[in-house]
Design a protein around this nucleic acid. Structure first.
Lengths: 241, 241
DNA sequence: ACAAAAGTGTTTGTGTTACACCCATGC
DNA sequence: GCATGGGTGTAACACAAACACTTTTGT
């Protein structure tokens, strides 16, 4: 990866992605720990090339991080407060990483590129967590799926971005039937219900949930799934094409 | 107004405003005709200062154009296709305005500033049309309220921006009770209904509309309004504080 | 008295919630 | 048989749409 300041990016504009997965009955968010001393966590993000649609840029960033294309994506908000810059973060980072101070401060161009105020376009993505192999960049020490309820404090306003993304997801999940992007291709009704419960953080009545979802007429009922459990075998379902 | 390229604006980022008013039972949009030969129409817009929140910038732009502050405002979408630039528009403009060609082409900096690709943040605003005195800038020949159904073809994707703004308005009007921003302080139930009919472009049943709105419990019923018409006098209403 | 439009009530339909019951499966 | 969890039916309720009737006003 080259220095961003040397590339043909639009200046002061970034894209931040809230990548939602679903595992162990909980919503998970893909976040990376930056490759510096100190606990710096951030959402996967990137910049927009001069000749690139912003939707394409978001897709590219997601593909880099998840390894999969054809991801469900929605632009949900622009974060543009004047105080949105990396100054605090970079200064704290340099304090904790004395070796950086020479590199970065001497590299004026790079330092100035990064510490200017950024306007960031928020996208959220919904992925089947089993298909994703998280990829870190050379800025990252590591990249993790973290339960949305256990997210660490992140740089700038990234925690707020996650909150706003969840809000938008909740608003859109019904009308756009997009929750099923988080499940594998086939699933039981109980799995779908638990997913909804994770998204809305509240319980649903089993029978009414089933009725509501089936009345949408968007699922095909497949064969039963024999689990070996001491109860009736549930049907598998798949999204209609 | 100084040349934008000389000011401390964030580059390649603009704000476009869809300012909704309501008059003669129809939604109106404030648009300006550019001060050049040829029929160039555009939405009111502007740029963001380096030290300015984007919401503040939108507010500033709206105040410049309408003369009023305290305007209801919502960010609704970012338009960021790579093809979003003023090149076609500027070239057509120069063809129709030969005197410009020297000014603009020789003024390389200005020309390049304007013809680069722009990412534009869309805001819609709701105003009481009677309180607004539309202000043109020196780029405008004139500024007009135009019925949303009769809008001319505008530069770049400004017609699409209006469509998307209307879509967002329709989604938000119920939950945010924001339609009343378009009416004067007091209004009859019929006026409110006609406004809703203009926004959704469909009729509502009179009695059910009244019931629905009153059940929201957001209006105070005031005195009757005697119109001199040969029928029962309607009540006036006002938004509760 | 009548027309016009405002106000209000009643019925119908639809969709959601709550409760109840039956069915398949393994121990 | 029994515990467990899945599937389905129905009554109760809330909300919205459709229909009907009454009231006020000026001519």
């Amino acid at each position: 990866m080259h220095n961003p300041s040397e590339q043909n990016f639009i200046q002061q504009l970034s894209i931040d992605c809230v990548i939602f997965g679903y595992h162990q009955k909980q919503l998970q968010v893909l976040v990376n720990k930056l490759n510096f001393n100190g606990n710096f966590w951030a959402l996967p993000g990137g910049f927009v090339f001069q000749n690139e649609d912003i939707d394409k840029a978001a897709n590219r960033i997601l593909q880099e991080r998840t390894g999969i294309s054809e991801i469900y994506l929605d632009q949900f908000y622009v974060f543009g407060n004047a105080t949105r810059n990396n100054l605090n973060f970079i200064d704290e980072l340099i304090a904790l990483n004395p070796h950086m101070s020479i590199d970065e401060k001497s590299n004026k161009v790079e330092y100035e590129w990064f510490t200017r105020r950024f306007i960031s376009i928020g996208y959220y993505a919904l992925v089947d967590i089993r298909k994703v192999v998280p990829q870190k960049t050379d800025l990252d020490e590591s990249i993790h799926w973290i339960n949305i309820k256990d997210l660490p404090s992140m740089i700038i306003d990234h925690n707020d971005i996650v909150l706003k993304a969840l809000e938008s997801l909740r608003v859109n999940v019904d009308e756009k039937r997009l929750a099923f992007n988080l499940l594998s291709e086939t699933f039981t009704m109980k799995e779908a219900q638990e997913l909804y419960e994770a998204i809305f953080d509240k319980p649903f009545a089993r029978n009414n949930f089933q009725k509501k979802i089936l009345d949408l007429d968007i699922l095909d009922r497949l064969e039963k799934k024999f689990t070996g459990a001491a109860n009736k075998a549930p049907f598998l379902y798949r999204l209609k094409k």
